[in-house]
Simulated assay, not measured.
Amino acid sequence: MTDFKDYFSTKSDSYAHYRPTYPHVLAEQLATLCKEKNIALDCGCGSGQFSLLLANYFEKIMATDASSNQIESATPHPKITYKVAPAEEVPLPNNSVDIITVAQAAHWLDLEKFYAEAKRVLKPKGIIALITYQNSILNDQKSNHLIENFYGKTLDHYWPPERRLVESGYKTLPFPFPEIEFTAPAMIAEWDFHQLYGYFTTWSAFKSFEAAGGAGEIEKFKMELAAAWGDLETTKTITWPLALRVGYFD
Rank of each mutant, 00 (worst) to 15 (best):
L225Y: 08
M62R: 06
V246P: 01
Q49T: 08
L33K: 03
A226W: 03
C43S: 13
A106M: 03
T172H: 12
A85H: 00
Y7E: 10
D250K: 15
R163W: 10
E233Y: 05
N38P: 04
A186P: 00
T75F: 11
L138K: 01
N69S: 15
M223G: 02
I137H: 04
R163F: 09
L244P: 07
G214P: 06
W229M: 09
T201K: 12
G169N: 02
S208F: 11
D6C: 08
G46T: 01
P78N: 08
G48H: 01
T237H: 10
T237P: 07
A211C: 03
W191L: 04
H17K: 15
I39R: 05
T202Q: 08
C43R: 03
K222H: 15
S73F: 05
Q104C: 10
I61K: 01
K5C: 10
G44V: 02
W191S: 00
K11F: 08
C34R: 04
A129F: 07
R164P: 00
F182R: 09
L242V: 06
L109S: 06
P161H: 10
L26V: 11
S143L: 09
E89L: 08
Y22A: 04
L196S: 07
Y199G: 00
A129P: 03
E88V: 04
I180W: 11
I80Q: 00
E117L: 00
G230W: 01
A243M: 09
T235K: 15
E59H: 11
T154K: 04
T234H: 11
T81N: 08
E72V: 11
